[in-house]
């Protein structure tokens, strides 16, 4: 196994000293520039829970670890900065594996982070474990001067807006798990969405700068569940119009060729790392304007309602549907 010192040296070699960190790698703790970072997020990936070495390379895992953290900062309407990485690795692990994770993080930083931000390593920690691989990343960020966008700002009358598409990562996972057998080379978008998801870094920061959303969250647990987090924090209800959700062509193909329940995937599938927000009607022209200007994939998918209405999901036929573990069904059939 790579020693802690070797790994830290490798981190320092791969990632330059980050802005906003006065003292980074090489001391007992990092020293942050005062007043710089006001957002912190942390994500953990556990082997067997969040990834499998059988179908994800270490580069994929590193990529996803950073992407999920970036997505959290984006969902706060902020911009990302320095990260801190902790790895708990089995003693008999091939030393190339953690190296691959670092490469994946580096690749993701290059691909997902706009030039206006600098994502780099402020420090790290390595320990051995007798259990599964555990990777934890803490990412610092800067909120917009207009303030962080929280989950608790939605009010009845706000529109529910999705930036991006959901369900694709769940479809990719289903393929990788062998739930359906597909030909090699098919469904590249779905597989990539699971292995190397995107993160709406630039969009999140711009939305924060413009102060457009009243509440925002990234879709990591699934659209319905994440909307539920906003509703709970804001103490409101919602009507989610599932018929307004975008259907990725690969999802449509999966439904047509494999009879896959893509609506459930779109509503409950996790790991999409898109942005779900509520927007006051007066600010809706701004999001359409931004969508046009930045070629964003924006969808108006419902309305925030009074808390006594709870969350109502309208299915493809406009009728309310209810969810159970693993799927949904019409209320009438309950």
């Amino acid at each position: 196994m790579t020693t802690e010192f070797e790994l830290i040296a490798r981190i320092a070699e791969l990632f330059g000293a980050p802005e906003g960190v006065a003292v980074g790698i090489g001391d007992d703790g990092a020293v942050l520039d005062p007043g710089r970072f006001d957002l912190v997020t942390m994500d953990t990936m556990v082997e067997g829970v969040h990834f499998e070495r059988d179908w994800s390379s270490p580069q994929d895992v590193g990529w996803k670890l950073l992407a999920s953290n970036l997505s959290d900062i984006a969902a706060m309407g902020g911009g990302p900065g320095a990260f801190f990485l902790s790895m708990a690795l089995p003693a008999d692990l091939d030393p190339r594996w953690p190296e691959g994770v670092l490469e994946g993080i580096k690749d993701a930083a290059g691909a997902l982070v706009p030039e206006s931000f600098e994502v780099s390593a402020g420090g790290g920690d390595l320990s051995s474990t007798h259990g599964p691989i555990v990777l934890t990343m803490t990412l610092m960020g800067e909120a917009s001067p207009a303030g962080p966008v929280l989950r608790r700002g939605a009010v009845p009358g706000d529109r529910i807006v999705l930036l991006g598409q959901t369900g694709l990562a769940a479809a990719g996972l289903a393929i990788l798990r062998g739930d359906i057998e597909v030909e090699s080379g098919q469904f590249a978008c779905a597989l990539r969405a699971h292995r190397r998801p995107g993160a709406q870094v630039r969009a999140g920061a711009l939305l924060g700068l413009y102060g457009v959303p009243s509440a925002m969250i990234d879709v990591s647990d699934g659209l319905v569940q994440d909307l539920g987090h906003i509703l709970k924090a804001s103490e409101v209800g919602a009507r989610l119009e599932a018929y307004s959700l975008p259907h990725h062509p690969e999802l449509v193909m999966l439904r047509e060729e494999y009879d896959l329940d893509i609506l459930t995937m779109m509503l409950t599938g996790g790991d999409d790392y898109e942005l779900l927000m509520t927007i006051p009607p007066a600010r809706m022209p701004k999001i359409w304007d931004m969508a046009r200007r930045h070629s964003w994939d924006v969808h108006d998918i419902g309305e925030v309602r009074s808390p006594d209405e709870g969350m109502v999901v309208l299915g493809p036929d406009g009728e309310p549907v209810a969810f159970e573990k693993g799927g949904y069904r019409h209320f009438e059939a309950l």
Binding site: R36, S144, P145, G147, L209, Y210, G211, S214, R283, K286
Partner: peptide, 21 residues
């Protein structure tokens, strides 16, 4: 540069929430 954030917007139609600044 670290303290000033430039955003394209008119004063008569601000997209910010109430009482932010």
């Amino acid at each position: 540069q670290r303290r000033i954030f430039f955003v394209q917007q008119r004063v008569n139609a601000l997209s910010y929430a109430d009482e932010v600044f």
